[in-house]
């Protein structure tokens, strides 16, 4: 019936298609328009600045911060080599490389400790009765969204030489004089662990919560021990969460700024501080920009690895 009435018109199907396509185009235009303000703000004040530091990294350093407009690769050369002030020859100087190595080790160590303690915690949360789980998530979410600076300062107050922990140990008679914990490798890794633990627990919880426990039951039916069930069934099923959690801890830990600033005391530098210092007391903007780009490259490599490993879209936290 419908077909006969349509065929009476002039190219009716074409017309309907035209209308539909025009409507679709209008809708796409509207949706671009809706997204435009966000894109403009992030584009101008988020992406253009990143391009600025690419340009800056190839310029000369001005004496009191800022840049001199001449092409120079000093910022990159200076990463690995030091120029002799007398004969201008280059010597290999591993000082900065050491900071990178330290940052990597700290970030890796932090990720490992977070996984070690975070996995049991996420599993424990995921096996609570459903009505309780939300409150467990809230318990982990509160530190996640609490002020990082303040939380790190709190750690500092506790592990200081005259802090609560040393005072307590002396009072208990365990030690005679304070154990130096602040401004050591230990304090930085502790701080990183403390800062990023929720980043590990939350994605782990998300993947453990969806787990089908009938598979665990099947494992036990086949005479698996608890350890075997954990290693062969639960952990493989939680792998996407494990990978996501490790990324979410490793990436921010690698570029950490606040933690080494407060708990490292300027002696145990990480990449983040090295970059920050170039814009403060160090005052070599091009060098700082170059370091930022090298860090960014590491982050991109890690992200790419993650996308490969997880074979899907990058998951967002929050």
């Amino acid at each position: 019936m419908a077909e006969t009435t349509f065929s009476a018109g002039l190219l009716p199907d074409d017309n309907a298609e035209h209308v539909a396509r025009a409507a679709e185009q209008a809708s796409v235009r509207t949706r671009w328009a809706l997204s435009l303000p966000s894109l403009l703000i992030i584009g101008i004040f988020g992406i253009v600045p990143l391009l600025v530091i690419v340009v800056y990294s190839f310029l000369g350093a001005a004496a009191y911060g800022g840049v001199e407009w001449r092409f120079s690769t000093d910022a990159y050369v200076g990463f690995l080599f030091q120029k002799d002030i007398f004969d201008d020859t280059l010597h290999f100087a591993p000082d900065y490389l050491q900071i990178y190595l330290r940052s990597f080790l700290f970030a890796l160590g932090t990720t490992a400790i977070c996984l070690l303690l975070g996995f049991p915690t996420a599993y424990f949360m995921a096996t609570r009765p459903p009505a309780q789980r939300n409150y467990w998530v809230l318990l982990i979410t509160i530190p996640f969204w609490s002020n990082l600076l303040v939380r790190t300062l709190a750690v500092m107050l506790i592990i200081r030489d005259e802090g609560l922990l040393n005072d307590g140990l002396i009072w208990a008679g365990a030690i005679q004089k304070p154990v130096i914990m602040l401004y050591t490798n230990f304090s930085i890794v502790l701080g990183l662990f403390y800062s990023y633990l929720p980043f590990m627990i939350l994605p782990l919880y998300a993947s453990l919560e969806k787990m089908d426990f009938r598979l665990v039951e099947a494992g036990f039916d086949l005479y698996a021990t608890r350890g075997k069930v954990l290693r062969r069934i639960i952990m493989p099923l939680a792998l996407p969460g494990i990978v996501a959690g490790c990324m979410l801890v490793f990436i921010p830990a690698l570029g950490a700024y606040v933690t080494p600033l407060i708990l490292g005391g300027g002696t145990h530098l990480m990449i983040g501080d090295l970059i920050g210092q170039q814009f403060g007391s160090g005052r070599n903007w091009p060098f700082g920009c170059a370091q930022a780009l090298i860090l960014m490259a590491f982050v991109l490599v890690t992200l790419t690895l993650y996308v490969r490993l997880s074979g899907g879209k990058v998951q967002q936290h929050g």
Binding site: S35, L50, P252, F279, W285, L295
Partner: peptide, 27 residues
């Protein structure tokens, strides 16, 4: 372009904060 919009909107999450900080300062 929808995927591209998504990436741009989420970009600030991917960039380490210290990099955003010095980039914004330079800008």
């Amino acid at each position: 372009g929808q995927g591209a919009i998504y990436t741009v909107v989420n970009l600030p999450l991917m960039v380490p904060e210290i990099i955003t900080a010095i980039a914004t300062l330079s800008f």
